[in-house]
Each structure stands twice: as C-alpha cells, then as structure tokens.
Design a protein around this nucleic acid. Structure first.
Lengths: 204, 204
DNA sequence: AGCTTTATTAACCATTTAGTTAAACAATAT
DNA sequence: ATATTGTTTAACTAAATGGTTAATAAAGCT
C-alpha cells in the first residue's frame, strides 16, 4: 500500500504516511519502517527529514492537536443569538470530527503521555477560545437569556455529545451490532439532536 | 515503586502490576520488565504464570472490558419509573468510571486493535444489556411516557455525558486550567445534571 | 529424613527496531 | 564538463525487549 504520486514532495509523502501509521497505531505501536514503506521511500530518509521518531511524532501530534479544535472564535464573536451560536458550534464540532474520526482516540491516548510543557507549547499557537466561550455563557446568564449554569459544564456537555460517539465508535458497533452506514445516519441526526439538547438544558 | 505485601499471591501481584502498567502505557508501550519490577519479582515469573505478554494483556483487557459496563440489568428490570431508571443508570456509570478513571482511554484505544472475534468472546461472558435497554425505551415510548426517540441515541447520550469527561480529563485540565479538585467537584455535580438533561431531552 | 513437585532466579538468546554511515545518484551552479 | 550541493539508498550498528533455560530454593508428600 504505497502512496505514490511523484509530484508531491518527499516531505509531504512522509507526513501523510506518518499520519496514517501514528493515527492507527499510536506513538508506541508505530514503526518507522512501516512509515517508510507506506511513503514508498528508504527509512533513512525519515531521519534525514525529521531526525528522529520522536520529532516526527511531535510534528504529527501538534498538527492533530490543533485540528482537534474547530475554529470557534468567529462563531463566538459573531452577532447572533446564543442558541444559534450553540448550534453552529455543535455542527462545526461534529463535522470536524466526522471528517477525521480517528483523531479523538489518538489525541486522548497521547495527551496523557506528553509532558505538560510540550502541550502548552503546541497548544499556545492556536489556543481554543475557552475564556471567550465562558464569557459568552456568563453574558447570556446575566442577560437572563439562559439559566445560571456553570460554563465548564456546558463545554463538557457539548464536547462529550459531539466527540465521544466517534471515539467510542468501534465499541458502540461491537456492543450494539449496528453497521457503519447506520452509524453515519445516527451521526447525521445528531447535528440537530445535540444542539437541541444543549439549548433545552440551559434555556429558562 | 514495588508492590510488597508478601501475603498476596504472586499471581495477584503480577496482575496488579500489569494493570498499573497496561493502563498507563497501553499494550504497545508496556514493558514486561516494568511489570516485573512493579510486582517485585523476576521477569521469568511473568512467563511462568501467563506465558506471554499477549496472554497477560488479554487477561487484563478482558477483566477491564467487563468492568467498563456497570451491571445495569437489575436497574432495567426493576419496577420503577423510567426517569428513575435513567437517574440510577447515570449515577452507576459516573460512579463506576470515577473509581477507575483511567479505563475509558485504555479501553477505547485498545478496542480498535483487538480482532472482533476476541472482543466477541470476552464480551459474551457479561454482555451489556443493550437489547433490554432498547426494549425499556421502546416500551416507554409506546406508553407515551416519553417522546418517540431512537433508543441508540439515548444510549449514546448517556455514555457520552457520563464517560467522556473522564476520558478527556487530561485534555480538559490542560485547556481549561482547572485543578484536580475542581474537576472532581464538577463530576459530582454531573450525577444530578446528566440525568436531568437526559430526561428533559425525552420527556413529553 | 528423603523424594517429588512447584516456585523463583540469573544469565542468556533471538529478534526487532531506531538510528547511522558511506557510497551512489541527481540537480544546480560555474 | 565539472565541481558542488542536496537527495536517496543498502548495509550496518547498538540497544531494547520478549522470551527461554538451567540451576537453585521452597513446599508437599511418604
């Protein structure tokens, strides 16, 4: 299963192969030889371009970590109803993860293994706008648009309902016996269901 | 960091050490030497008792997989209101995972790597009562106690809201900057919040 | 006690794997 | 064309790691 396409650069071929292998196996399970094979190049080139497995992993991890959070600032800063914002955020999240469903398990598994300093570093380039979200919730509370709720609980509810089904997909399929297709249908339904649920839980 | 206590059997010492190491590092990251050290025994004993790393892992994984699902049948079969059942299920889930918060990441990460046949085998000894849950929901729908909802969506909502915050704990702490203690407080609150949310989302 | 079986250990082995090296090849400049 | 620089490869190395072995110690048995 070699990624061909001679036009794209070697570096890009390596990155794409590394993504596939790291997402599938994690840092510890990944093999440099597998990455090289998948990229269709000699293993030494991995070190020529990225020096070490650790460095290559960090590149993929940092990129994934940033992809894991949709860009919500624009939504949060927009001049729309609170409930519209919630709906837009949920849709953005579900779409984002639906397009890279392997990310949640990968990120969750690897985050625990990374030193906090490293997380802080990569995270600070595109920090998810948590503070802004908290402010938006608190403003809505003050304006009596919603119940007095803990903003962090709202965040937890949103990310839980949007992300977890993807992380648990293999488990859910195993336990419920549903097919890939049925799963996709359920996920599509959730784009409406989840925001409804969130809004209903906080509206006055 | 050696597990002493000469009274417990060697096999138990191994299992406890294996749990710690496998939960922390996963199958690929775990080292037999680390397990032996943590158990305070010679590495050869691991093979004497469990033959191979794979077999030892399977033992821990099977046990964890079963622990991952609280025993819900009694609750589902009990002669109580639907909403009471929901509340009991949520509390059972949150308590269960709160007592072993490392389980979700471990299970989610490893489930994807196991062959389906193996999952089926270990899962069949204590199958989570999915069918029963579905029946309970469908009955409540027929009796017009709740809205006509897809039972699987309800399951997804419950497990998402109960489990995900634990799986994402390191990430949430990183991103929100809250302390271990604050996190525990939030989790305690969720035992009330989550069932409220579930019930509100399906009641007529 | 003395014999047998079970538990435990230190030393060893074979394989895997990240990383290196030196040489070949390709592109670019002079 | 030829020197120079950057790219790619096959072969190699060193360390880590799962697993084995043969010898020793402990426990059970008669």
């Amino acid at each position: 299963m070699v990624n061909k396409a001679k036009d794209i650069s070697t570096e890009q071929k390596i990155l794409e192969a590394a993504r596939q292998v790291f997402f599938d196996k994690g840092m510890d399970g990944a093999r440099m030889q597998d990455i090289a094979d998948k990229a269709g190049i000699n293993k030494a080139l991995l070190h020529y371009y990225f020096r070490s497995k650790e460095k290559l992993f960090e590149t993929i991890f940092a990129e994934s970590f940033n992809n894991f959070f949709p860009k919500l600032s624009l939504i949060l800063e927009s001049d729309t109803d609170f409930s519209v914002k919630i709906e837009m955020i949920c849709t953005a999240y579900i779409d984002q993860i639906h397009s890279m469903p392997y990310l949640p398990i990968f990120i969750l598994h690897e985050v625990a293994r990374q030193p906090e300093s490293f997380l802080k570093k990569i995270w600070s380039s595109y920090p998810p706008p948590v503070k802004l979200f908290i402010k938006v919730v608190e403003t809505a509370v003050k304006k009596k648009e919603i119940k007095p709720v803990h903003p962090l609980q709202v965040i937890m509810n949103i990310v839980s309902l949007c992300i977890f089904p993807f992380a648990a997909k293999p488990l859910l399929q195993q336990v419920t016996g549903i097919s890939k297709k049925q799963f996709s249908v359920l996920m599509e339904e959730r784009k409406k269901l989840v925001p409804q649920m969130i809004i209903q839980s906080i509206k006055k």
